[in-house]
Simulated scan of single mutants.
Amino acid sequence: MALAEEDIAYIKTHIGEWLTEQSLGKPAAVYEIELRERMVRVEEELKHQRELMRQGFEQVDRRFEQVDKRFEQVDKRFEQMDKRFDEMLKRHDQQFFWLLGFIATGVGLIIAALRFL
C-alpha cells in the first residue's frame, strides 16, 4: 500500500511541527540556542578544569622541589656526621697508639728493672 501524493505533501508540511513537539515543545531555533548555550558552558567548564589541572601540576612541581631541597639538607647532615665519625676515629686511633706506646714503655721498663735486679 503506497502513500498518495497528498499524504506525502501533508507529511512534508507537518514534519517540522511534529519534530518540534517531540523536542519538548520548543521550536527548532530555541532548541539550537539552548544547545549552543550548553556547549559554551561545557567549553567554559573544560577551560576551568584545565586551569585547575595546571595549578595542581604546578603545586606538585613545587612540592617536588621542596622534597628535593629537603633531601639535599639531609645529605648535608649525613656528610657532617661522616666527618664527625672520621674525626672521632682519628682521635681513637691516636689514643690507641699512645696507649700502645705507654704499654710498650712500661713493659720495657719492667724488663729493664728485672734485669738489674
Rank of each mutant, 00 (worst) to 15 (best):
V42P: 01
E72L: 13
E72Q: 04
V42C: 09
D61M: 11
G56V: 12
R50F: 03
F71R: 13
F57T: 14
G56W: 10
L52C: 05
Q49D: 04
R70N: 06
E45N: 02
V67E: 01
R70G: 01
V67I: 10
D61T: 12
F71T: 04
E43A: 00
R41T: 07
D61Q: 14
M53E: 15
V42A: 13
V42Q: 02
F57Q: 13
E43S: 08
R62S: 10
E44G: 03
Q66N: 05
K47N: 11
E51S: 06
L52W: 02
R50L: 03
R63H: 12
R54D: 12
E65A: 15
G56S: 01
L52K: 08
R54F: 02
E45K: 00
V42S: 11
E51G: 03
Q59C: 12
Q59K: 13
R54N: 10
E43C: 01
D61I: 08
F57V: 13
F57K: 06
E43W: 01
E44V: 01
R41A: 05
Q66G: 03
V60R: 08
E58I: 06
F71M: 14
V40S: 15
F57N: 03
R62E: 15
R62Q: 03
F71Q: 01
G56P: 00
Q66V: 06
K47G: 07
E65N: 11
M53H: 15
M53Y: 03
L52V: 07
E43L: 11
Q66H: 05
K69M: 04
R63M: 06
V60W: 07
R63E: 08
D61E: 15
Q59W: 10
Q49I: 10
E58Y: 07
K69D: 14
Q49M: 10
K69G: 10
E51Q: 02
E51C: 06
L46F: 07
K47V: 11
V42G: 04
R54M: 13
D61W: 15
R70A: 09
R62H: 10
M53D: 07
E51D: 05
Q55H: 13
Q66Y: 06
E45G: 02
Q49S: 03
Q59A: 15
R50D: 09
G56F: 11
Q73D: 01
R70E: 05
H48K: 03
K47P: 00
D68E: 08
R50W: 02
R54Q: 05
F64W: 00
E72M: 08
Q59Y: 10
R62W: 01
G56E: 12
F64Q: 11
E58A: 08
Q73R: 14
F71H: 09
F57S: 12
R62I: 09
K69H: 11
E51I: 03
L52I: 04
R41W: 06
E72C: 03
F64S: 06
K47I: 04
V60Q: 08
D68I: 00
L46N: 13
E51R: 05
R54P: 00
Q59P: 06
Q59L: 05
L46M: 12
R63K: 15
H48Q: 11
V40M: 02
R41G: 05
F64V: 13
